[in-house]
């Protein structure tokens, strides 16, 4: 297993946002996490990235216990997150945003990665000198993903990448995610858009009020009665 989470809990003050969560992600897998507003999805990703502390449980990455490791060292090990709401560095140029994504890499490696991202996302190359805040929502999402890829992720965490995008762009985002998995990147995607996320996922988890209540293959979850009623509006 690339990522192995066991019995994880996390709190905001006295509010328990994660309660005894266990999740496994294998190398090369595309795993989706779905759940309603406030279920604790973002909190889980923040604990995996080391931004929020765990109050109980363990996080193993590549067999090593990283539960107390600071966020920058996790990025160096290959855990890279595209946060909820894109969070680009608005006043900085597009190119600087990308370079920041390669912050933990050496200068030569960073240059190489930059050329690769421009090739993958030509629209970003065209606006490389614009402040990131001037891009459209869809382009900002593209930038946020490209910035994360600059870090050469072994595990890519995506927090609601389709949020607030027009339907055509949503499809584009899911196409990109599928392409990344096909290129060998392990992806853990959090989505409220449960149908599309589960459709492309190898496996999925369903979270309610801080707990994992269902775990199965993506296909099985799509036909699960409980999932259909609660998340697919069927």
């Amino acid at each position: 297993m690339l990522l192995e989470i066991t019995g994880l809990s996390a709190h905001y003050g006295r509010i328990r946002a994660l309660d005894n969560v266990s999740i496994e992600i294998g190398e090369g897998e595309l795993v989706a996490l779905v759940g309603a507003n406030g279920a604790g999805k973002t909190t889980l990703l923040r604990v995996i990235s080391g931004i929020r502390p765990a109050s109980a449980g363990r996080v193993l990455f590549d067999g090593k216990d990283i539960t107390r490791m600071p966020p920058d060292r996790r990025v160096r090990r290959g855990i890279v997150q595209v946060p909820e709401g894109r969070q680009v560095f608005a006043p900085m140029r597009v190119e600087e945003n990308l370079l920041m994504g390669g912050y933990t890499r050496g200068a030569a490696e960073r240059r190489e990665a930059l050329a690769l991202q421009y090739e993958r996302f030509p629209a970003l190359a065209a606006s490389r000198n614009k402040p990131a805040g001037m891009l459209s929502g869809g382009q900002q999402q593209m930038l946020a993903v490209a910035r994360a890829l600059m870090g050469k992720p072994r595990l890519l965490l995506l927090d609601e990448p389709s949020l607030g995008l027009a339907p055509r762009l949503v499809d584009e985002v899911f196409d990109t995610v599928t392409a990344l998995r096909d290129a060998g990147v392990t992806v853990f995607i959090v989505e409220q858009n449960a149908f599309q996320a589960l459709s492309i996922a190898d496996r999925g988890y369903v979270m309610e009020t801080g707990q994992v209540v269902l775990a199965d293959t993506g296909k099985a979850l799509l036909t699960n009665e409980r999932v259909k009623a609660a998340y697919l509006g069927l």
Binding site: P71, R76, Q81, V88, M92, Y103, R147
Partner: peptide, 23 residues
Amino acid sequence: TMTGRAMRAVAFNMLAAQLAGVN
């Protein structure tokens, strides 16, 4: 310089800077 950019990044968005691997 990358350190200079990281300082600006921290100022604009601490969370995103940390997620990019800035200490």
